[in-house]
């Protein structure tokens, strides 16, 4: 018995060592970015990111630049926040509405429509990107946030998630609502909406993360510099003029923070949202 215990302990230690090494490798890139945010931007240009810890060269200059300097970072930041919040609210409302339709009713054409949801799930956006881009310019919608958001508010994977979630609600609840005289829409908004909270949380985080980090489609749609989102703005800094590199390093680091804070607070929902599709396949 004792030898089994010893063996188990050895296994635990071996695993902790393995996973700690992996953790160090995973943190390393963020760590070098963090240390670089205290070094002069010129160092980055000259050496790239590295492990040098020459504390005498460290300063808060970059942070000073970020918070008090003359640049557009905070415009991008606010644009990203605005776009993320509006996208998340619109996507959740509309996708929940649609997901409920799929889950609560039997109707002609439901299966065909649901197969379309599944097909869209497996088509990369890049396939429709160019014709969609052309379409947006014909419709004079270029350079607007509406063009970024609208194509994806009825979001296939979010609809799929809500549908799976709502399949579990008892039909008797809906019947009770009908007997009480609620309309079909009243049932959704008054009875179903409140019990969807955990599902909303999971999808809010997943969609929020995607909107915050979105790059390719906004790159095509947005023209005016005052409408740049954070990812678009940060990418304009990769040309090393003036203070660009200082702002790039500190700004990149700072762009992770809002999402990181959300992650720490709502970790459970992050994981739920991410793994939603994986078990049932």
């Amino acid at each position: 018995m004792n030898s089994v215990k010893k063996k188990n302990k050895a296994a635990t230690i071996a695993m902790v060592i393995l996973f700690s090494c992996l953790a160090i490798l995973i943190i390393l890139p963020v760590y070098v970015l963090f240390t670089a945010s205290f070094k002069p931007g010129g160092d980055l240009l000259q050496y790239g990111l590295n492990l040098n810890l020459n504390l005498s060269r460290w300063s808060l200059d970059n942070y000073n630049l970020l918070f008090f300097g003359k640049h557009d970072y905070w415009i991008w930041f606010m644009n990203s926040i605005l776009l993320t919040v509006v996208t998340v609210i619109a996507t959740l409302l509309i996708s929940a509405f649609v997901g409920y339709g799929f889950a609560a009713y039997e109707f002609k054409g439901r299966n065909v429509l649901f197969v379309i949801v599944l097909i869209i799930l497996s088509i990369p956006l890049e396939v429709v990107m160019l014709p969609l881009y052309k379409q947006m310019s014909t419709w004079k919608m270029m350079d607007s946030y509406a063009a970024i958001m609208l194509p994806f508010v009825a979001h296939a994977s979010t609809i799929f998630f809500f549908r799976q979630y709502l399949l579990g609600i008892p039909k008797s609840l809906l019947e009770a609502g009908r007997i009480d005289g609620a309309t079909e829409y009243g049932i959704f908004f008054k009875l179903v909406f409140p019990i969807m909270k955990p599902a909303f949380a999971a999808m809010a985080i997943l969609n929020g993360m995607n909107a915050w980090n979105n790059y390719l489609w906004p790159l095509l749609v947005i023209r005016s510099a005052d409408k740049y989102t954070l990812t678009l703005g940060l990418n304009t800094l990769i040309n090393p003029y003036g203070d660009n590199y200082s702002l790039l390093v500190v700004g990149s680091f700072f762009s992770i923070i809002p999402i990181f804070v959300l992650f720490i607070c709502f970790q459970k929902y992050f994981i739920e949202g991410m793994t939603a599709g994986a078990v049932k396949g």
């Binding site: 790239g48 990111l49 993360m209 790059y215 940060l234 990149s252 992770i256 992650f263 991410m274």
Partner: peptide, 28 residues
């Protein structure tokens, strides 16, 4: 911890790796 990198955008992740694998002899 392992989930952390998924929070970064491709813009930030790509920039970090480009600079870690820079040409200079001082890059990581």
């Amino acid at each position: 911890i392992y989930f952390l990198p998924a929070l970064t955008s491709v813009v930030v992740a790509g920039t970090i790796f480009r600079l870690m694998f820079g040409e200079a002899s001082g890059s990581l």
